[in-house]
């Protein structure tokens, strides 16, 4: 095999790889400042609401409905971004009214009227962790960081 032929073959292979890479669709969306703000703001609002769940649901019903609408809007926003299916799925798990995160918290509060002290503490930590996972993914779209360090730097439970 001549040197010229080998060189041409390498060049062709390199160009083929480059053409393939540059033509590929993005694997995941870019970092989005609004999406990040949605997650951090709603985390704070959700945890503040959980703190009030020792009170009668009826007195906080409007606040719950308002927050639920905001969380639904955050899901819709995430689902509307290109190449953002993974983040949209995370919001769907968090908000699902039949699920076991925000959905079950509201369900238990509504059906029981009030939420027990220990459950409130534990559910608050669980919901904080759920938001931290969404926040961690958004941050990692911009730069590589471990989720533990992001959660430690964020708002406390």
């Amino acid at each position: 095999m001549s040197i010229a032929y080998r060189g041409a073959r390498r060049a062709f292979a390199l160009l083929a790889v480059l053409a393939f890479l540059s033509g590929c669709a993005p694997l995941i969306s870019e970092f989005n400042a609004d999406a990040y703000k949605n997650a951090t703001t709603l985390k704070a609002e959700t945890l503040a609401l959980v703190d009030k769940s020792g009170e009668a649901y009826a007195t906080r019903r409007i606040e719950v409905e308002t927050l639920t609408t905001k969380i639904d809007a955050a899901y819709e926003y995430a689902a509307g971004l290109p190449a953002n299916q993974i983040t949209a799925q995370q919001w769907q798990i968090l908000r699902n009214p039949e699920g076991r995160l925000y959905g079950s918290f509201v369900r238990i509060w509504r059906t029981r009227g009030k939420v027990g002290d220990e459950y409130r503490v534990e559910k608050k930590a669980q919901l904080a962790e759920a938001y931290d996972l969404i926040i961690c993914l958004e941050v990692n779209k911009k730069e590589s960081k471990s989720c533990s360090s992001i959660a430690a730097a964020g708002p406390k439970e």
Partner: peptide, 11 residues
């Protein structure tokens, strides 16, 4: 999902 997304972003 977070881990899958982080892998996609790094790749």
């Amino acid at each position: 999902l977070t881990q899958a997304g982080i892998s996609a972003a790094r790749i």
